[in-house]
Design a protein around this nucleic acid. Structure first.
Length: 151
DNA sequence: GCCAACGTTGGC
DNA sequence: GCCAACGTTGGC
């Protein structure tokens, strides 16, 4: 079982939105590293820290669960979508995604600031300077620590 | 709104 | 295959 951190801008799609819709296809990821994590490494049942980016303050607000096997992102085939990719074909899709389902919402947000202050979270990719990846793997030790902080 | 960091594109 | 230009991310 693998652990992840996924970023979302709350103005676009927040943890409250995920709670409401229960399950959401993680469409629109157009970064190869992030895509590789989804189609190569994610398995149904994996858990992900749900991180609000571009927020004040930014931080982890809950947990989501991988709720599907990887499949081609349908928006790549949709000419009116902003995520349309003319080089993608049904036979050779370029972008893959998984669905995420709502798992839990923290009673207290674990802010980026708090995370930076925690010795035990040292080494987390999201804390490294210049890291903009919207999907990153997280080790269990860090995952558990953040869940504890959010309780 | 600013801007550092980084990924992508495209000319050569 | 290099690299300048450009676009995007995301904290502040």
């Amino acid at each position: 079982m693998n652990y992840w951190l996924i970023k979302s801008e709350p103005d676009v799609f927040s943890i409250a939105d995920l709670r409401k819709v229960k399950q959401e296809p993680w469409s629109g990821v157009r970064n190869y590293q992030a895509r590789n994590f989804m189609w190569r490494d994610m398995r149904e049942g994996d858990l992900a820290l749900f991180y609000h980016s571009n927020a004040s303050p930014p931080g982890v607000v809950g947990v989501a669960k991988v709720a599907s096997e990887p499949y081609p992102d349908p928006t790549q085939f949709d000419p009116v979508s902003e995520y349309f990719d003319e080089k993608a074909t049904a036979e050779k899709p370029r972008w893959w995604l998984v669905d995420f389902s709502f798992e839990s919402e923290f009673s207290q947000m674990v802010t980026l600031d708090m995370m930076r202050g925690e010795q035990k979270l040292e080494g987390m990719i999201v804390l490294q300077k210049g890291t903009r990846l919207s999907i990153t793997p997280v080790v269990k030790k860090h995952f558990d620590k953040i869940v504890k902080l959010g309780k």
